[in-house]
Each structure stands twice: as C-alpha cells, then as structure tokens.
C-alpha cells in the first residue's frame, strides 16, 4: 500500500486510537499484576466479600429490572409521540447522567427527610438500607436504560404498529404485540447497560445508603472500605472481579447487536 496523504491521515487516527487503548491496557495490566491469583482467590473467598458480591448481584439485577420497566414505556413515548416541550423533557431525562454522583445521593438523602419522603419510608425504609442501594442504582441506571430503549424504538419503523392499529389493536396492544417483540434485543441491551451501570455505582450509594459492612456493602463500597484501611490487595482483587463482570456485560450487549 502506498503511503499517500489519505493513508497517512488514517494511520495518524489509528495511532491515536491504539494509544488510548494501550493506555487502558497498561492500567489494567498494572492492576492485574499488582498481586497474585492466589491472593485474589483468598480475598474473594472471605465472607465479607462474598456477601458484598451477592448483594451487588442482587441489587444490580433488581435495579436493572426496575430501570427496564420504566425505560420501555418512556423510551416508546419519546420515540413515537411528537408533543410540545419534548426537547425539554428529552434533556430532563438525561439529567441523572450529567449530575455529579454525590449530588444524586445528596438529593435522595434530602428528599427522604421531607414530609413526602418520610411517608414513603413508613412503607419501605430506604435511607441507609439495602433498598436504598437499589434506589440509588436505579435513579442513574434508568437514565441509561431510557436512552437505549429510545434509540431502539427510533430504529424500529412505526409502520407495522400503524397497520396493527387498523387490524384491531389499541395503542397499548400494538406496543405489546408488535413493538416489544421487535425490540427484544434492545431490551436485553438496556437491561445489561443498566446492570453494568448499577454495578459501578458508588457515590449515591455512599451518601444515601452508607457503607455498612455486611449490610449495605456492595462491591464498589468494598473497594472503598478496603482502600480506606490500606488493604490494597483486597481492593485490587475486588476491582479485577468487577472488571471481569463488566467485560462479560459488554460481550452480552455486543451479542444483542444493539449500538450503545
């Protein structure tokens, strides 16, 4: 291949991408080689870490399921209906993505000190509880799930749903019988993204649910707790475990064929 100007341009762009990926590879390699596999296994078998792992898996799954339940109707609404103020609502739905994580936690904490929040807590206590972990994960994960579902529905033609309306469907039936089956892959992708986002959530959980060992402790909290007492080996082992889970989720999302 001759090295003309166009090729040089592509080569330069490729070098930038490779440089970025190499930086990430170095970061992960340095973390992975910090301690030995024996040490990782020893850490991951400890009762605290096993409990935190179980809590992470449980809370992330619950938060992602709730996020998907919200994302499907909101995503469908945003992709199919034109209405006044839609641009503003669209921007508002992205607010949890751009808010600093600690602020999200603070907002939750303050809301549950208000009269309305206290009434809710009489039914389900959230503050400094495991349910608070799920809520903190949900509020951020839902924004990502909504974005994914909105994209999924936007890529699906609306015409089959129109035809379904003429065949006897109500709008809800058209969504249920036509749009949802067609959006299956997008729903899997939205669930995975919400799950992965929940897994990495830390700021809102720390502020709203606290970091109580064997109670509201999830994997990111474990990393923070272990770091705070100087136990770097344990923090590294848990971090690598989270990297592994994140990679698995990424593979699952890619397998759905959805672009996110």
């Amino acid at each position: 291949m001759r090295l003309n100007r166009s090729n040089l341009c592509w080569l330069a762009l490729a070098l930038i991408a490779v440089g970025y990926l190499a930086f990430w590879a170095l970061l992960l390699a340095a973390t992975a080689t910090y301690s030995t596999p024996d040490s990782w296994l020893h850490v991951l078998r400890s009762p605290e870490i096993r409990h935190a792992t179980l809590m992470s898996l449980l809370t992330c799954t619950l938060a992602a399921a709730l996020a998907l339940l919200l994302a499907v109707p909101v995503g469908y609404l945003m992709s199919r209906l034109e209405f006044r103020g839609k641009a503003w609502l669209d921007a508002a739905l992205d607010v949890p993505i751009i808010l600093p994580p600690l602020v999200v936690g603070l907002c939750l904490l303050i809301f549950f000190q208000t009269w309305g929040g206290k009434q809710i807590e009489k039914i389900i206590p959230f503050t400094y509880q495991l349910s608070g972990v799920v809520l903190a994960q949900f509020v951020v994960a839902a924004a990502f799930a909504i974005r994914t579902m909105r994209g999924t529905f936007q890529h699906l033609p609306a015409r089959p749903e129109d035809v379904a309306l003429t065949l006897g469907c109500t709008r809800f039936q058209a969504l249920w019988h036509v749009a949802l089956p067609a959006a299956r892959r997008g729903m899997v992708a939205a669930f995975c993204i919400a799950w992965a986002r929940s897994l990495g959530e830390f700021g809102p959980i720390l502020v709203f649910a606290g970091a109580t060992r064997m109670k509201t402790e999830v994997l990111p909290t474990t990393v923070w707790l272990e770091l705070s007492v100087g136990n770097l080996d344990a923090a590294v082992a848990v971090s690598l475990f989270m990297v592994l889970l994140a990679v698995l989720v990424l593979v699952a999302v890619r397998a759905t064929g959805e672009k996110v």
């Binding site: 699906l156 033609p157 015409r159 035809v163 036509v178 067609a182």
Partner: peptide, 11 residues
C-alpha cells in the same frame, strides 16, 4: 390497510 413497505411484523 396495506402500506407501500407492506410493514410485516418483524419476528
């Protein structure tokens, strides 16, 4: 109603 793209239900 049969639209131009026929709009068969995917899946």
């Amino acid at each position: 109603y049969v639209p131009q793209d026929l709009a068969l239900f995917p899946g």
